[in-house]
Simulated scan of single mutants.
Amino acid sequence: MHKPILIIGACGQIGTELTIELRNKYGSDKVIASDIREGSEALMKSGPFELLDATNYAAIEDVVMHYEIDEVYLMAAMLSATAEKFPMRAWNLNMNSLFNVLNLAKDRKISKVFWPSSIAVFGPNTPKENTPQNTIMEPSTVYGISKQSGERWCEYYFKKYGVDVRSVRYPGLISWKTMPGGGTTDYAVEIYHKALEKGAYECFLAENTKLPMMYMDDAIRATINLMDSPAEHIKVRSSYNLGSMSFTPKEIAKSIQKHLPGFQISYAPDFRQEIADSWPSSIDDREAREQWGWEPKFDLDQTTAEMLKNLRK
């Protein structure tokens, strides 16, 4: 029988779907959702929920003790585009929430931690094609700096205190269930909504901006597979590269036009273009594939078909 799990930041784009998937797997009462605000009706009805500030150590500790939590998934974060507007708030949330959870694990109050990193840890001097697991990392965004720092702290807590912390570097994520939350890859979700609503979309990135992306089902599967893997298989304790597909706004538009021939796209790059230009265009994720069996299932055309089918409903 699986011990109780706490998800912090359960109402976000990833947290919502992760919570429901874990509840399907382990039972509703075994997965405690928490966030600073209430989430969707589907999430709130699916099992126990706690209002929780990820930066409040005592509050997290109370929930952990009350439910006898064994594993924590820390999904709370301020994402790239929003973090550029509120740098100190982003740093405070992204770093202090991580320290809170790592310290609970260090003191043996929980046994396992999942913390997501991002392709934002890379920077303009990182090799853009097939970005290696270990390479130059000079992030140029607040979000990227917080994630790179977080990776270093995760590895430190593993080596120094034996904390079983696990992480993946998510690419841009595409989902029909929840709207994105202020990231630079949000266009790849918005475009499907606008294609169905208006038949046209004005993209905030240039047409040939190629970025690593992933369908949400793959991201959730990767997260749970990583956490379920035996500890001895997890060789990377900073964060694993995680790859799936890479495409440009122009290519996603062509994929949509196979279903909606009249769909039109235009381009008006804004401040997010500079962020996107600093990120990789494709990812080498051999370590994840070899060490714990990672393999994506969805390519661009499969993703487009799923997005349009489900959004039409």
Score class of each variant (00 low, 15 high):
residue 271 F to N: 15
residue 56 N to Q: 11
residue 125 N to I: 13
residue 61 E to Y: 09
residue 264 Q to S: 09
residue 1 M to Y: 13
residue 98 L to A: 09
residue 169 R to D: 02
residue 91 W to V: 15
residue 163 V to C: 05
residue 190 E to V: 07
residue 205 L to M: 06
residue 255 S to P: 04
residue 39 G to E: 07
residue 259 H to K: 14
residue 247 F to K: 03
residue 22 L to D: 00
residue 240 Y to H: 02
residue 3 K to S: 12
residue 223 T to K: 00
residue 118 S to D: 01
residue 197 E to S: 10
residue 148 Q to P: 04
residue 180 P to D: 06
residue 226 L to F: 07
residue 235 K to V: 15
residue 181 G to P: 01
residue 217 D to F: 12
residue 63 V to W: 01
residue 9 G to I: 03
residue 258 K to R: 15
residue 67 Y to I: 06
residue 114 F to Y: 13
residue 109 K to V: 09
residue 96 N to G: 12
residue 259 H to R: 14
residue 119 I to E: 03
residue 85 K to D: 14
residue 115 W to K: 01
residue 59 A to V: 08
residue 131 T to G: 07
residue 248 T to E: 06
residue 122 F to L: 11
residue 44 M to D: 05
residue 256 I to A: 03
residue 306 E to Y: 10
residue 161 Y to F: 13
residue 209 T to A: 08
residue 288 A to M: 07
residue 168 V to H: 06
residue 310 N to K: 15
residue 174 I to A: 01
residue 202 E to K: 15
residue 182 G to E: 08
residue 15 G to I: 04
residue 39 G to S: 05
residue 48 P to L: 09
residue 171 P to T: 03
residue 118 S to M: 05
residue 166 R to Q: 07
residue 276 A to V: 05
residue 122 F to C: 11
residue 49 F to P: 00
residue 237 R to A: 07
residue 254 K to I: 08
residue 67 Y to R: 10
residue 219 A to W: 04
residue 136 I to G: 06
residue 290 E to Q: 15
residue 204 F to M: 13
residue 137 M to Y: 08
residue 47 G to L: 05
residue 151 E to A: 08
residue 129 E to R: 14
residue 257 Q to H: 09
residue 266 S to T: 15
residue 127 P to Y: 08
residue 39 G to D: 05
residue 71 E to C: 12
residue 247 F to V: 06
residue 206 A to R: 08
residue 117 S to P: 00
residue 239 S to G: 13
residue 255 S to Q: 08
residue 291 Q to V: 10
residue 313 K to I: 10
residue 177 K to H: 13
residue 310 N to Y: 11
residue 211 L to D: 03
residue 103 N to Q: 13
residue 78 M to Q: 10
residue 220 I to V: 12
residue 42 A to R: 15
residue 154 C to D: 03
residue 294 W to D: 02
residue 140 S to N: 14
residue 175 S to P: 00
residue 269 P to T: 04
residue 83 A to E: 03
residue 295 E to T: 14
residue 170 Y to S: 04
residue 173 L to E: 00
residue 159 K to P: 01
residue 219 A to P: 00
residue 297 K to M: 14
